[in-house]
């Protein structure tokens, strides 16, 4: 997959520290269009921090970020990053619990809706047209993720696996250029993991989304990803195809610890 094309997202030499802790220490990454890329690493390696830097939640101390070949300022409001076409799911569920499933997904389309307050208040003209148009798009996603039966249930009441699925739907709703998934399969049983893996693959292959994900389940990562980057203590220690990573000595050390006396 990783032909020599222009990377969709390129982060270069990112440094960020919180107090004395160096969370990221000169990490560079590229995500190429059309691929599924995984960021793996032990707990505390800086994976989620990396996503937060990309999203604009954290401003790195040093580094450069390019999206679609253009450099973006390091300090940027998250919703402006969203407007550029980067969407995201979260490690701990971050659904809008009080709202129904379809409303949650609808919020994902907020960047595409432009009717003003008065049109919305009167529910007339542009606003009405827009609501129905976007509802159709949302229904398409609901259909894609096979969650038709819960479309009108408050998401706070849903089982965990379904909540994760709705979150994926919310991320896809904005029709982003790049989807960041932060542990989409954490805490799931095998069947639920297979479901999500299938949706991730479908989103990539059928819908053509570029996906970067963080995941701890090595089996899934090795199976579905085109390329893997490994972080450890804020440094990138390896990058490559699943086969290369499997046999990489540094990666084995990071995960299993230093072999003693050898």
């Amino acid at each position: 997959m990783s032909q020599k094309t222009e990377p969709l997202l390129q982060v270069e030499d990112i440094h960020i520290s919180f107090g004395g802790l160096k969370a990221l220490n000169g990490v560079s990454l590229e995500v190429y269009p059309g691929e599924i890329m995984a960021i793996i690493g032990p707990n505390g390696a800086g994976k989620t921090t990396m996503l937060n830097v990309i999203n604009g939640v954290y401003t790195p101390d040093e580094g450069r970020i390019f999206f679609e070949g253009k450099e973006r300022p390091l300090k940027m409001k998250p919703h402006h990053v969203a407007a550029m076409g980067i969407s995201r799911t979260f490690q701990n569920l971050a659904l809008f619990k009080g709202m129904d499933t379809w409303c949650n997904i609808m919020v994902g389309r907020t960047q595409k809706m432009h009717s003003n307050l008065f049109s919305q208040g009167l529910y007339w003209g542009m606003s009405q047209k827009e609501e129905i148009e976007h509802r159709e798009a949302v229904e398409w996603i609901i259909d894609f993720l096979e969650i038709e039966n819960i479309r009108k249930q408050p998401t706070g009441m849903l089982p965990y696996g379904l909540q994760k699925r709705v979150e994926l739907g919310r991320a896809l709703a904005s029709e982003p250029k790049l989807v960041l998934l932060d542990e989409p399969m954490a805490g799931m049983n095998l069947e639920e993991k297979e479901d999500i893996a299938r949706f991730v693959l479908d989103a990539n292959e059928e819908l053509g989304y570029t996906i970067a994900l963080i995941e701890h389940d090595m089996g899934v990562v090795m199976d579905i990803c085109d390329r893997i980057a490994v972080l450890d203590f804020g440094n990138k220690i390896a990058e490559g195809t699943p086969e290369e990573i499997k046999s990489n000595q540094k990666v084995i050390q990071a995960y299993l610890g230093e072999a003693e006396g050898e």
Partner: peptide
């Protein structure tokens, strides 16, 4: 109201 950080990252 429900999750402000997520809302902002989603684009609100």
């Amino acid at each position: 109201r429900d999750m402000d950080v997520a809302a902002e990252i989603i684009g609100v």
